[in-house]
Computed example of a mutant assay.
Amino acid sequence: MNVRLSSTAIAASLMLATGATAQTTAPAPTAPATTNPAQTTTPAQTAPATPATGTAPAAPATGAATAAPTTTLAQALSTLPGRATLARLVKTAGLDAQLAGPGPFTVFAPSDEAFSRMPAGALDTLSKPENKAALETIIKYHVVSGALTADQLKQQITAGGGTATLTTLAGQPLTAQIGPNGNIMLTDVNGQKAYVDQADVRATNGVAHLTNGISIPKIG
Protein backbone atom coordinates (compact mmCIF):
# COMPACT_ATOMS: atom_id res chain seq x y z
CA MET A 1 0.00 0.00 0.00
CA ASN A 2 1.36 3.40 -0.93
CA VAL A 3 1.89 5.77 1.96
CA ARG A 4 1.98 9.42 1.01
CA LEU A 5 3.01 11.57 3.93
CA SER A 6 1.01 14.73 4.54
CA SER A 7 2.97 17.97 4.57
CA THR A 8 2.18 18.30 8.28
CA ALA A 9 3.55 14.83 9.05
CA ILE A 10 6.72 15.45 7.06
CA ALA A 11 7.37 18.78 8.75
CA ALA A 12 6.72 17.28 12.20
CA SER A 13 9.12 14.40 11.54
CA LEU A 14 11.84 16.73 10.35
CA MET A 15 11.42 19.10 13.27
CA LEU A 16 12.19 16.21 15.60
CA ALA A 17 15.44 15.77 13.70
CA THR A 18 16.59 19.36 14.17
CA GLY A 19 18.57 20.76 17.02
CA ALA A 20 22.16 21.85 17.31
CA THR A 21 24.98 20.06 19.06
CA ALA A 22 26.14 22.09 22.01
CA GLN A 23 29.89 22.44 22.48
CA THR A 24 31.68 24.26 25.25
CA THR A 25 35.20 24.59 23.83
CA ALA A 26 36.62 24.88 20.36
CA PRO A 27 38.26 21.66 19.10
CA ALA A 28 41.82 21.74 17.89
CA PRO A 29 41.85 22.26 14.11
CA THR A 30 42.93 19.38 11.92
CA ALA A 31 45.09 19.66 8.86
CA PRO A 32 43.05 19.67 5.63
CA ALA A 33 43.36 16.72 3.29
CA THR A 34 45.53 17.31 0.24
CA THR A 35 44.98 14.11 -1.68
CA ASN A 36 41.21 14.27 -1.86
CA PRO A 37 39.64 17.71 -1.35
CA ALA A 38 36.20 16.17 -0.85
CA GLN A 39 37.26 14.52 2.40
CA THR A 40 37.38 16.34 5.72
CA THR A 41 38.01 15.38 9.31
CA THR A 42 35.15 15.80 11.76
CA PRO A 43 36.33 17.92 14.70
CA ALA A 44 36.35 16.44 18.18
CA GLN A 45 33.20 17.17 20.17
CA THR A 46 33.22 18.10 23.85
CA ALA A 47 29.55 17.52 24.54
CA PRO A 48 27.18 14.67 23.62
CA ALA A 49 25.12 15.05 20.46
CA THR A 50 21.75 15.75 22.00
CA PRO A 51 18.98 17.90 20.53
CA ALA A 52 19.06 21.46 21.78
CA THR A 53 17.37 24.68 20.87
CA GLY A 54 19.35 27.83 20.22
CA THR A 55 22.77 26.33 20.97
CA ALA A 56 25.69 26.33 18.60
CA PRO A 57 28.81 24.30 17.99
CA ALA A 58 32.25 25.77 18.29
CA ALA A 59 33.65 27.88 15.49
CA PRO A 60 33.91 25.74 12.35
CA ALA A 61 37.05 24.42 10.78
CA THR A 62 37.47 24.80 7.05
CA GLY A 63 37.77 21.97 4.57
CA ALA A 64 39.68 23.92 1.96
CA ALA A 65 42.52 21.88 0.48
CA THR A 66 45.70 23.05 -1.18
CA ALA A 67 45.12 20.87 -4.24
CA ALA A 68 42.44 21.74 -6.77
CA PRO A 69 39.19 19.82 -6.30
CA THR A 70 38.66 16.85 -8.60
CA THR A 71 35.11 15.74 -7.78
CA THR A 72 31.67 17.24 -8.23
CA LEU A 73 29.39 17.91 -5.29
CA ALA A 74 27.36 14.82 -6.16
CA GLN A 75 30.49 12.68 -5.99
CA ALA A 76 31.88 14.44 -2.93
CA LEU A 77 28.83 13.86 -0.72
CA SER A 78 29.46 10.14 -0.45
CA THR A 79 33.04 10.77 0.73
CA LEU A 80 32.23 13.35 3.39
CA PRO A 81 32.33 12.13 6.99
CA GLY A 82 28.89 11.44 8.44
CA ARG A 83 26.98 12.42 5.28
CA ALA A 84 26.03 8.99 3.89
CA THR A 85 22.32 9.58 4.56
CA LEU A 86 22.30 12.85 2.63
CA ALA A 87 24.20 11.25 -0.27
CA ARG A 88 21.59 8.49 -0.45
CA LEU A 89 18.67 10.91 -0.28
CA VAL A 90 20.13 13.04 -3.07
CA LYS A 91 20.09 9.98 -5.33
CA THR A 92 16.62 8.94 -4.17
CA ALA A 93 15.30 12.41 -4.97
CA GLY A 94 16.89 12.22 -8.45
CA LEU A 95 19.08 15.25 -7.81
CA ASP A 96 22.48 13.60 -8.21
CA ALA A 97 22.63 14.54 -11.90
CA GLN A 98 21.89 18.17 -11.10
CA LEU A 99 24.56 18.32 -8.41
CA ALA A 100 27.00 16.77 -10.88
CA GLY A 101 26.23 19.53 -13.39
CA PRO A 102 28.15 22.75 -13.97
CA GLY A 103 26.40 24.75 -11.25
CA PRO A 104 28.01 26.25 -9.35
CA PHE A 105 26.15 25.37 -6.16
CA THR A 106 26.47 25.79 -2.43
CA VAL A 107 25.26 22.78 -0.45
CA PHE A 108 24.46 22.86 3.26
CA ALA A 109 24.93 19.22 4.20
CA PRO A 110 23.16 17.89 7.33
CA SER A 111 24.80 15.12 9.33
CA ASP A 112 23.71 11.50 9.60
CA GLU A 113 23.12 12.16 13.29
CA ALA A 114 20.55 14.86 12.48
CA PHE A 115 18.61 12.46 10.24
CA SER A 116 18.83 9.74 12.90
CA ARG A 117 16.70 11.84 15.25
CA MET A 118 13.69 11.41 12.97
CA PRO A 119 11.01 9.03 14.31
CA ALA A 120 11.53 5.35 13.51
CA GLY A 121 10.47 4.57 9.96
CA ALA A 122 9.91 8.20 8.96
CA LEU A 123 13.00 8.40 6.77
CA ASP A 124 12.14 5.17 4.96
CA THR A 125 8.63 6.42 4.32
CA LEU A 126 9.91 9.74 3.02
CA SER A 127 12.20 7.83 0.64
CA LYS A 128 9.31 5.97 -1.01
CA PRO A 129 8.61 6.89 -4.68
CA GLU A 130 5.20 8.35 -3.81
CA ASN A 131 6.90 10.90 -1.54
CA LYS A 132 9.61 11.86 -4.01
CA ALA A 133 8.27 15.39 -4.60
CA ALA A 134 8.45 16.19 -0.89
CA LEU A 135 11.96 14.73 -0.62
CA GLU A 136 13.11 16.75 -3.62
CA THR A 137 11.84 19.94 -1.99
CA ILE A 138 13.67 19.11 1.23
CA ILE A 139 16.98 18.43 -0.52
CA LYS A 140 16.70 21.51 -2.74
CA TYR A 141 16.11 23.59 0.37
CA HIS A 142 19.73 22.81 1.30
CA VAL A 143 21.14 24.03 -2.03
CA VAL A 144 21.81 27.60 -3.18
CA SER A 145 22.91 28.71 -6.63
CA GLY A 146 26.47 30.02 -6.75
CA ALA A 147 29.58 28.91 -4.88
CA LEU A 148 29.55 30.82 -1.58
CA THR A 149 32.47 30.34 0.77
CA ALA A 150 32.11 30.96 4.50
CA ASP A 151 33.92 34.29 4.11
CA GLN A 152 31.57 35.34 1.31
CA LEU A 153 28.53 34.35 3.37
CA LYS A 154 29.84 36.36 6.31
CA GLN A 155 30.40 39.36 4.02
CA GLN A 156 26.77 39.12 2.87
CA ILE A 157 25.64 38.88 6.49
CA THR A 158 27.64 41.98 7.40
CA ALA A 159 26.36 43.88 4.37
CA GLY A 160 22.81 42.96 5.36
CA GLY A 161 23.18 44.39 8.84
CA GLY A 162 23.59 40.99 10.47
CA THR A 163 21.33 38.91 8.24
CA ALA A 164 21.63 37.48 4.73
CA THR A 165 18.65 35.92 2.97
CA LEU A 166 19.61 33.02 0.71
CA THR A 167 17.19 31.82 -1.96
CA THR A 168 17.41 28.05 -2.22
CA LEU A 169 16.69 25.83 -5.23
CA ALA A 170 13.39 25.02 -3.50
CA GLY A 171 12.40 28.64 -4.05
CA GLN A 172 12.20 29.27 -0.30
CA PRO A 173 14.56 31.41 1.77
CA LEU A 174 17.15 30.43 4.34
CA THR A 175 18.33 33.14 6.72
CA ALA A 176 22.05 33.23 7.49
CA GLN A 177 23.52 34.97 10.53
CA ILE A 178 26.70 34.77 12.59
CA GLY A 179 26.27 32.31 15.45
CA PRO A 180 27.49 32.85 19.02
CA ASN A 181 30.84 31.15 18.33
CA GLY A 182 31.48 32.95 15.05
CA ASN A 183 30.10 30.14 12.94
CA ILE A 184 27.29 30.54 10.38
CA MET A 185 23.81 29.96 11.74
CA LEU A 186 20.97 29.04 9.36
CA THR A 187 17.33 29.66 10.25
CA ASP A 188 14.66 28.02 8.11
CA VAL A 189 11.15 29.24 7.32
CA ASN A 190 9.84 27.39 10.39
CA GLY A 191 12.30 29.07 12.76
CA GLN A 192 14.47 25.98 13.23
CA LYS A 193 18.22 26.55 13.42
CA ALA A 194 21.21 24.63 12.09
CA TYR A 195 24.88 25.53 12.43
CA VAL A 196 27.82 25.11 10.08
CA ASP A 197 30.46 23.07 11.89
CA GLN A 198 32.71 22.37 8.90
CA ALA A 199 33.00 24.98 6.17
CA ASP A 200 34.39 25.31 2.66
CA VAL A 201 34.60 21.75 1.37
CA ARG A 202 35.47 22.45 -2.26
CA ALA A 203 34.23 20.63 -5.33
CA THR A 204 34.67 21.27 -9.03
CA ASN A 205 31.17 22.75 -9.28
CA GLY A 206 30.79 24.50 -5.95
CA VAL A 207 31.28 24.25 -2.22
CA ALA A 208 29.69 22.34 0.67
CA HIS A 209 29.26 23.42 4.27
CA LEU A 210 28.58 20.65 6.78
CA THR A 211 25.78 21.41 9.23
CA ASN A 212 24.58 19.78 12.43
CA GLY A 213 20.86 20.10 11.70
CA ILE A 214 18.24 19.77 8.98
CA SER A 215 16.63 22.89 7.51
CA ILE A 216 12.92 22.45 6.97
CA PRO A 217 11.01 24.03 4.05
CA LYS A 218 7.29 24.46 3.76
CA ILE A 219 5.99 21.35 2.02
CA GLY A 220 2.79 20.95 0.06
Score class of each variant (00 low, 15 high):
D188K: 13
I219A: 07
D124C: 01
D124A: 05
N183H: 08
A159G: 14
L99E: 09
G101R: 08
L14N: 04
G206W: 03
M15H: 13
I214E: 04
A31W: 04
A38F: 01
T187E: 05
D197F: 15
V3M: 07
L86I: 11
I139H: 00
T204V: 15
A59C: 06
G101Q: 08
G94C: 15
K91L: 05
K218L: 10
M118V: 03
S13E: 06
T62M: 08
N190M: 15
G171C: 13
G103W: 01
P102T: 15
R117P: 09
L210H: 05
P27Y: 05
A74Y: 03
P37W: 01
A159I: 15
Y141T: 04
T158W: 10
Q23M: 10
N131D: 08
L86C: 09
L86H: 05
G54S: 08
T41G: 06
L95F: 06
L126R: 00
P27I: 08
Q98M: 11
L135P: 09
G94I: 09
G160K: 07
A122S: 05
A203W: 13
T53V: 14
A61V: 13
S78Q: 06
G121S: 04
P57L: 02
L135N: 01
T62S: 15
T165F: 03
G161C: 11
E130A: 06
A52Y: 07
Q198D: 02
T72R: 05
V143Q: 01
T30E: 07
T79R: 07
V201F: 02
A194F: 13
T24P: 02
L14I: 04
A33K: 04
G54D: 14
I139N: 04
R88D: 12
L80N: 00
A208I: 15
L77Y: 07
Q177K: 15
G162V: 09
T187C: 10
A22S: 09
A133L: 00
T62N: 11
A122E: 00
A9V: 04
N212T: 10
T125V: 05
T34C: 11
A31Y: 06
F105P: 08
A87G: 05
P29N: 08
T24V: 13
A68S: 11
G191K: 01
P180I: 10
T149Q: 08
P69I: 12
R83D: 08
A28Q: 13
K128W: 01
T149W: 12
L14C: 01
A109F: 04
A49N: 14
G182F: 07
R117C: 06
L73E: 07
Q45S: 13
P110F: 01
M118F: 00
A47F: 07
A109Q: 06
T79A: 15
A114D: 01
L86E: 06
L95Q: 13
K154T: 14
N131C: 03
T106A: 03
A67G: 05
Q155D: 13
Q98V: 15
E130H: 00
Q75K: 03
